[in-house]
Design a protein around this nucleic acid. Sequence first.
DNA 1: AAAATTTAGAAAACCGGTTTAGCAAACTGC
DNA 2: GCAGTTTGCTAAACCGGTTTTCTAAATTTT
Lengths: 331, 331
Amino acid sequence: MNSINQIAKELKVSKSTVSKIINGKAREARISEALEKRVLDYVEKVNFKPNSLARSLATGKSLTIGLIVEDIGDSFFGPMALYIEDQLKSQGYHVLYSSTLGNPIEAKVIMQSMIDKKIEGLIIAPTLDLSNQIKELQELKFPLIIFDRNIDDNQANFIGTTNYGSSKLLCEHLLKNQYKNTGFITIDSEQSQMKDRREAYVDFARENGMQENILSIPYETHKTDAIKSIEKWLLANPTVDSLYFSTNYLCISGLKVLRKNKLNIQNYGIVCFDDHESFDIIFPSITCMEQPLEAMSKEIVKYLLLQIKGKDILSDQIEIPATLIVRESSK
Amino acid sequence: MNSINQIAKELKVSKSTVSKIINGKAREARISEALEKRVLDYVEKVNFKPNSLARSLATGKSLTIGLIVEDIGDSFFGPMALYIEDQLKSQGYHVLYSSTLGNPIEAKVIMQSMIDKKIEGLIIAPTLDLSNQIKELQELKFPLIIFDRNIDDNQANFIGTTNYGSSKLLCEHLLKNQYKNTGFITIDSEQSQMKDRREAYVDFARENGMQENILSIPYETHKTDAIKSIEKWLLANPTVDSLYFSTNYLCISGLKVLRKNKLNIQNYGIVCFDDHESFDIIFPSITCMEQPLEAMSKEIVKYLLLQIKGKDILSDQIEIPATLIVRESSK
DNA sequence: AAAATTTAGAAAACCGGTTTAGCAAACTGC
DNA sequence: GCAGTTTGCTAAACCGGTTTTCTAAATTTT
């Protein structure tokens, strides 16, 4: 390994001189072009790369951003992470990411560990129970973006989609298509995006004198045997004429149930919050609200950089509209 | 912010003493229990967290692993990343990840940048054209795992699935079910996993005197308008009685084409390499080879840690069998 | 031609830790 | 009771950079 010290020794110049030249500050440090060239040539020759840990320690800049999601393998967070990374990369930043799997204890450990690593900003889809940690960071004026789901009484920058409004649009869409008794299948989560979707359903039902049929599946089981609960519930609620799934994976579970029980999918109106790769290849194709992934990721990066550059913490709460994609399942 | 220096000054002890106590080396450094307690209490009180950049610089250990995939938003790499992260986390490591999107130039930049950040090991699904960089690392005895697709003449540790063998099994499966003229739809990629799958198809066709029908879609277009090429090709090859898609997203594109053209999916036998969430909710459900994601990620982490701990570079080439999942589409 | 500036680079301090060497006091052995 | 050890801790060197301060020589000013 070669260090700036060795180079200095080899060339019989001072390490500060080498440092300045490497960082393109030769002119302002009034270093002769001859020496500059000599150093740069040598650096090139031995393929010297400065140790970025040392550099970060000295400058206080790590050029690293933390990204904490629920599950990087998920069809929402995975693509979001890709977009975010792509944009941050073009600004010279690296991404240190981690998945919480919804566990607040794990989330706290991850946050602390990232901060210990001197990340310059944090983008987080918070688990429940993270308010204190987030507020601490915010008081320290630490660049911070909350996304996807909000926390109570949030003073930090938030970026997400219009969960309440879009959820109502989905309900409305079903009613317009003559579905008058919608079942709402969701997970039992107090996360804001889930609460908003549910509230909109409830409000809509009340406003229109409709029956409220809600299946709330415990959060922990949602990806394993949610199927069983849905099955039981569907059989117990034969009068329901349409189904609104609050997430795409619940919808997929629901579709499996319908297939398995040889229930005719076409007898139901089906809508879902969030799109999925499979929704337009199956029959009937599934009507859904498509979240604005790219637009959200752009705002996230934009606001984070504003905070980092401006050293001013922002508290804008931004909701980008989702798009209703009408397909066969709701006709 | 508080540093070890400030703590030392505050408590009027030497910083080396503080360092040793913080690192649990009080006993072996023969520091009295009284002093140890006094320091620990103070550390607790001011909530001191050592600067991990400084620590890494001093110790040469960053406890960070680089993970380079093609696309973190993909249904193969996303879940793989989750598994890998999860296991590395339990060993105290962090993950610095990045997506190449298949671009070798980008890949090189990412590799260099991760190395500059003093990662302790690298897990990479290489793009083409990365042999030199990889060999350099390997000569430096740098802990390194190649996964998913291999590189030519690889001397480094490789972990993937049985692409050739499993591909043959898929062909065999179709033949056993009386499909005698299979079309193979793939991307025009020289990556090893793709080459292996294609070769198996070609070999099988020759061994059984079957016609070879291959559609090779240019890599760049594969996720955007692959659909058009598939459409054209299908219409131009009416005698094909079955379709073997070399990846799940190609299969999804293919299914869209079939639907769009009102071609009866059931007239074809369909198989696909790699499973997908949607394959058992659509009709007909799709027969596929399921890659052993969890098993592969376990081997990856196991071997990487062996290299890191043992300081011995391994060159085992490991292929974990994929599982044939028979569904309706091939009956 | 002496004083004041400028030039070109060296030296030193610092970032915040770890690690090795050093050292006075207390303890042991004979 | 004095050398040899052990104890308990401090001081200094180091990791590999950046940044501020310093200085000798060259130039300019007056």
